[in-house]
């Protein structure tokens, strides 16, 4: 459902506003409550994203992929699972499970490039490529290990 449809179909906060009834400032419901989950949310901190029952109001179900012009590409072969990218990602887009880096959530990544900057390996296990660049081509064109510059 598009945001426009969602807005026009959404009647919360408007219950008292009938066509025949004049509504004063004191009769309109204040505020709106959005529920992040379809079910009970009390033990959410012990559940991974894939085990949660997100409602359509959680931004988890939305995407900002259209913001991206460059995307990070992840190379598993070089990664040492240090989790630097996970802790510094501003968009919760590094998927990490059981202390292992699994990949990038391209629905939520905005392509800021912070993960590439904080990656400590040589060569980096995350690199930025153009959004339309093929993933296999990107991995194939990965740079070689850089030698230490001699002073």
């Amino acid at each position: 459902m598009s945001i426009g449809n969602m807005l026009s179909n959404d009647k919360r906060g408007m219950i008292e506003i009938g066509a025949e009834k004049k509504v004063g400032w004191d009769e309109v419901t204040h505020g709106v409550v959005l529920h992040s989950f379809e079910d009970d949310a009390t033990n959410v901190s012990s559940r991974k994203a894939e085990d949660r029952n997100y409602a359509k109001f959680s931004s988890y179900v939305a995407t900002v992929a259209s913001w991206r012009v460059v995307k990070p590409v992840y190379n598993r072969d070089i990664c040492i699972d240090c989790q630097n990218c996970w802790v510094y990602c501003p968009d919760t887009s590094i998927i990490s499970r059981d202390k292992q880096m699994l990949g990038i959530d391209y629905d939520h990544c905005k392509g800021c490039g912070v993960c590439v900057e904080v990656c400590p390996t040589n060569p980096k296990s995350l690199l930025m490529f153009a959004e339309l660049h093929n993933l296999e081509d990107a991995i194939a064109s990965w740079p070689e290990k850089k030698k230490k510059e001699e002073n």
Binding site: V44, S59, T63, V64, Q83, D98, K99, H108
Partner: peptide, 12 residues
């Protein structure tokens, strides 16, 4: 630390 379950969702 990375075993924590994120409670702040992406696509903000």
């Amino acid at each position: 630390f990375s075993t924590a379950n994120d409670r702040f969702e992406g696509a903000h």
